[in-house]
Design a protein around this nucleic acid. Sequence first.
DNA 1: TTAGATGCAAATGGTTTGCATGCGT
DNA 2: ACGCATGCAAACCATTTGCATCTAA
Lengths: 166, 166
Amino acid sequence: MDMTRTMVFSKEAENDRRAMQCGDLTGCPWHDVKSMLRAVGLRPTRQRMALGWLLFGKGDRHLSAETLYEEATRAKVPVSLATIYNTLHQFTEAGLLRQVGVDGSKAYFDTNISDHHHFFVEGDNELFDIPDANVGLDRMPATPEGYEIARIDVVVRLRRKSDAAK
Amino acid sequence: MDMTRTMVFSKEAENDRRAMQCGDLTGCPWHDVKSMLRAVGLRPTRQRMALGWLLFGKGDRHLSAETLYEEATRAKVPVSLATIYNTLHQFTEAGLLRQVGVDGSKAYFDTNISDHHHFFVEGDNELFDIPDANVGLDRMPATPEGYEIARIDVVVRLRRKSDAAK
DNA sequence: TTAGATGCAAATGGTTTGCATGCGT
DNA sequence: ACGCATGCAAACCATTTGCATCTAA
C-alpha cells in the first residue's frame, strides 16, 4: 500500500519536521530548528537558523526569496539575498520546503510539504493552500512509457469576482 | 453589444479560429491567418502573418519565445525578439494562444486553447498535452468568497524512469 | 585547522521598454 | 499621411556565480 509515493524524501523530511515541531517542541524555536537542520545534514549556521525560524515559526507559509529577505531584514537578521536563495534551495533539496511554480516569473516556496494543491489569486499574486486535502485527479491519463510521475501540480487560478462596475 | 470586450473574446476567437482552420480552410494558410488576425482586431502585418503561419500551420504546439524566434529565423522570416514577445502576448490576449506557466523560468505558449492539461518532462523541459481531454478534478474545493475561478491548471510532472542503475 | 557558509558584486537569462524608423490602411 | 508595428539596444528583474572572507566543528 501507499507505493505511489513518488516524492519519498519529502515524506521522511516531513516526519522529521513534524516530530520536531509538534513532538519535543519546547517553546524555543531555536532548538528545534537546530535539530531540524542537523536531521537533514545542514550545518546550523547563524543565518540558516534564523531563516528556519522565520520560515517554520508560524505555520504554513508561501513566500518568495524577496519576501523572506525583507522579513529577515525587518527582523534585524543580517543575511544577503544570495544566502536567501542558497538556503531556500538547500531547504528544498532537503525536503523541508517545496517550490511552487505558479506564474513563471518569481518562484514561491511553501513550508507545507505535504501532498496538496494551491489557489493562486491573479493580480495579487497571492498563493495559498487548497484546504481540502482530498482534491485528486479524476480519470488520470496513463503515464507515458519510460516515464514516471514526479509530482502533480494543480493550481486553481482565482480572480476577484467582478464587483458590478469596473 | 460587445461592451465588455476585455476577456470575452477568448471564446469567440476560438470559434473563429476553428471555423477558419477546419471550415473554409483552403490550403493557403496565409489567407486564413489574415482572417484570423482581422477577426481579433489585429493588423495583419508581415511578421504577424508569418508568426501566425508558423504557430498555427501545423497542429498543436508548445513553444517558448526563443523557440519561435529560432523557427522564424530558420524560415527566413525577419523578426526581432521583441516583436516575437509582442506578438505572443497580443495573440494570447486575443485568445489565439494560451500561456502555460510550468517551471517558473521561461514562458510557454500553447496553440491549443481548449480546456486541457499538461505533461511536463523535468530535465528536458518538454511540454505536451495530456491526451485524455477528460481529466478532471475530483472533489473540487469550494471557491473562496468573492472570487471566481479563472482557470485550473494541472501539470503532471514526469521524469525519465530511473533505468536500473544510476 | 579546515571544509563549508556567507557576502558582495558582477554576470546571466528571460523579458520589457524607449524611441526612431517602417509599413498597413 | 496617420498611427500602429517593428527593430534595436538599453533597461529590468529574478536568480546565479566567482571569489575573498568568515565560522562552525
